[in-house]
Amino acid sequence: MINILIAFCIGIGAIAILLASIGLLRMPDLYLRLSVTTKAATLGVGLILAGGALYFQDVGVTSRALAIIFFITLTAPVSAQLIGRVAYLIKVKMWKHTITDELAGRYDSESHALESDLKPDEVELPQR
Protein backbone atom coordinates (compact mmCIF):
# COMPACT_ATOMS: atom_id res chain seq x y z
CA MET A 1 0.00 0.00 0.00
CA ILE A 2 2.74 2.45 0.98
CA ASN A 3 4.70 1.32 -2.07
CA ILE A 4 1.87 2.43 -4.35
CA LEU A 5 1.88 5.86 -2.72
CA ILE A 6 5.67 6.16 -3.10
CA ALA A 7 5.49 5.05 -6.72
CA PHE A 8 2.74 7.60 -7.39
CA CYS A 9 4.77 10.47 -5.85
CA ILE A 10 7.98 9.58 -7.67
CA GLY A 11 6.20 8.98 -10.98
CA ILE A 12 4.39 12.33 -10.95
CA GLY A 13 7.63 14.06 -9.96
CA ALA A 14 9.60 12.45 -12.77
CA ILE A 15 6.91 13.37 -15.29
CA ALA A 16 6.98 16.98 -14.07
CA ILE A 17 10.76 17.08 -14.54
CA LEU A 18 10.37 15.60 -18.03
CA LEU A 19 7.80 18.29 -18.87
CA ALA A 20 10.20 20.96 -17.61
CA SER A 21 12.98 19.70 -19.86
CA ILE A 22 10.66 19.43 -22.89
CA GLY A 23 9.56 22.99 -22.17
CA LEU A 24 13.18 24.10 -22.00
CA LEU A 25 13.76 22.53 -25.39
CA ARG A 26 10.65 23.72 -27.17
CA MET A 27 9.83 27.21 -25.91
CA PRO A 28 10.73 30.00 -28.30
CA ASP A 29 12.56 32.53 -26.11
CA LEU A 30 14.45 32.75 -22.86
CA TYR A 31 11.78 34.30 -20.66
CA LEU A 32 9.21 31.67 -21.60
CA ARG A 33 11.74 28.92 -20.99
CA LEU A 34 12.56 30.39 -17.60
CA SER A 35 8.95 30.70 -16.56
CA VAL A 36 8.13 27.14 -17.58
CA THR A 37 11.13 25.27 -16.26
CA THR A 38 11.75 26.60 -12.78
CA LYS A 39 8.34 25.86 -11.35
CA ALA A 40 7.80 22.45 -12.91
CA ALA A 41 11.25 21.31 -11.85
CA THR A 42 10.66 22.57 -8.30
CA LEU A 43 7.38 20.66 -8.11
CA GLY A 44 9.03 17.52 -9.50
CA VAL A 45 11.97 17.51 -7.10
CA GLY A 46 9.64 18.26 -4.19
CA LEU A 47 7.47 15.26 -5.04
CA ILE A 48 10.49 12.96 -5.49
CA LEU A 49 11.94 14.00 -2.12
CA ALA A 50 8.52 13.51 -0.49
CA GLY A 51 8.51 9.99 -1.92
CA GLY A 52 11.94 9.40 -0.41
CA ALA A 53 10.76 10.63 2.99
CA LEU A 54 7.78 8.27 2.75
CA TYR A 55 10.07 5.36 1.89
CA PHE A 56 12.52 5.69 4.78
CA GLN A 57 10.09 6.84 7.51
CA ASP A 58 12.78 8.04 9.83
CA VAL A 59 12.98 11.35 11.70
CA GLY A 60 16.43 12.27 10.45
CA VAL A 61 15.68 11.45 6.84
CA THR A 62 12.32 13.22 6.89
CA SER A 63 13.80 16.39 8.31
CA ARG A 64 16.61 16.29 5.76
CA ALA A 65 14.12 15.89 2.92
CA LEU A 66 11.96 18.70 4.32
CA ALA A 67 15.04 20.93 4.58
CA ILE A 68 15.94 20.29 0.94
CA ILE A 69 12.34 20.94 -0.20
CA PHE A 70 12.20 24.17 1.81
CA PHE A 71 15.53 25.34 0.47
CA ILE A 72 14.68 24.64 -3.16
CA THR A 73 11.28 26.31 -2.89
CA LEU A 74 12.94 29.33 -1.32
CA THR A 75 15.79 29.71 -3.79
CA ALA A 76 14.20 28.79 -7.13
CA PRO A 77 12.18 32.05 -7.49
CA VAL A 78 15.18 34.11 -6.42
CA SER A 79 17.50 32.59 -9.01
CA ALA A 80 14.80 32.84 -11.71
CA GLN A 81 14.33 36.52 -10.95
CA LEU A 82 18.09 37.20 -10.99
CA ILE A 83 18.59 35.45 -14.32
CA GLY A 84 15.56 37.11 -15.90
CA ARG A 85 16.76 40.53 -14.81
CA VAL A 86 20.25 39.95 -16.16
CA ALA A 87 18.83 38.62 -19.42
CA TYR A 88 16.79 41.78 -19.82
CA LEU A 89 19.80 43.93 -18.99
CA ILE A 90 22.11 42.34 -21.55
CA LYS A 91 19.27 42.48 -24.10
CA VAL A 92 18.53 38.87 -24.86
CA LYS A 93 16.21 38.67 -27.87
CA MET A 94 12.48 38.28 -27.30
CA TRP A 95 10.08 36.13 -29.25
CA LYS A 96 8.57 37.89 -32.27
CA HIS A 97 5.02 37.41 -30.97
CA THR A 98 5.68 39.31 -27.72
CA ILE A 99 2.83 41.79 -27.51
CA THR A 100 3.77 44.37 -24.87
CA ASP A 101 6.99 45.54 -23.30
CA GLU A 102 6.29 48.06 -20.59
CA LEU A 103 9.80 47.71 -19.24
CA ALA A 104 11.38 49.26 -22.32
CA GLY A 105 13.51 52.30 -21.54
CA ARG A 106 12.95 52.18 -17.81
CA TYR A 107 16.43 51.01 -16.89
CA ASP A 108 19.17 53.55 -16.45
CA SER A 109 21.85 52.29 -18.81
CA GLU A 110 24.73 53.34 -16.58
CA SER A 111 23.70 52.51 -13.05
CA HIS A 112 20.98 49.91 -13.83
CA ALA A 113 18.58 51.71 -11.50
CA LEU A 114 14.92 51.09 -12.26
CA GLU A 115 12.44 53.90 -12.15
CA SER A 116 8.77 53.38 -11.51
CA ASP A 117 7.53 56.15 -13.83
CA LEU A 118 4.22 56.70 -12.12
CA LYS A 119 2.45 59.91 -12.91
CA PRO A 120 1.18 61.79 -9.83
CA ASP A 121 -2.49 61.17 -10.57
CA GLU A 122 -1.78 57.48 -11.03
CA VAL A 123 -0.43 57.34 -7.51
CA GLU A 124 -3.53 59.01 -6.21
CA LEU A 125 -5.90 56.51 -7.79
CA PRO A 126 -4.70 52.92 -7.51
CA GLN A 127 -6.77 50.28 -9.29
CA ARG A 128 -9.35 48.59 -7.15
Binding site: A20, L24, L34, T42, I48, L49, A65, I83, K93
Partner: peptide, 27 residues
Protein backbone atom coordinates in the same frame (compact mmCIF):
# COMPACT_ATOMS: atom_id res chain seq x y z
CA UNK B 1 21.41 27.80 -26.62
CA UNK B 2 21.69 31.06 -28.55
CA UNK B 3 22.85 33.19 -25.61
CA UNK B 4 24.93 32.51 -22.55
CA UNK B 5 21.93 32.98 -20.28
CA UNK B 6 20.25 29.96 -21.86
CA UNK B 7 23.26 27.90 -20.90
CA UNK B 8 23.12 29.14 -17.30
CA UNK B 9 19.44 28.18 -17.13
CA UNK B 10 20.13 24.72 -18.49
CA UNK B 11 22.94 24.15 -15.98
CA UNK B 12 20.53 25.18 -13.24
CA UNK B 13 17.93 22.69 -14.43
CA UNK B 14 20.59 19.99 -14.74
CA UNK B 15 21.56 20.49 -11.10
CA UNK B 16 17.90 20.12 -10.09
CA UNK B 17 17.57 16.91 -12.12
CA UNK B 18 20.73 15.69 -10.40
CA UNK B 19 19.14 16.25 -6.99
CA UNK B 20 16.13 14.22 -8.08
CA UNK B 21 18.34 11.44 -9.39
CA UNK B 22 20.28 11.32 -6.13
CA UNK B 23 17.05 11.03 -4.14
CA UNK B 24 15.76 8.25 -6.40
CA UNK B 25 19.10 6.44 -6.19
CA UNK B 26 19.06 6.61 -2.39
CA UNK B 27 15.68 4.85 -2.47
Amino acid sequence: GPSIVDRVVSIDLMVIIGIGAIAVYSI
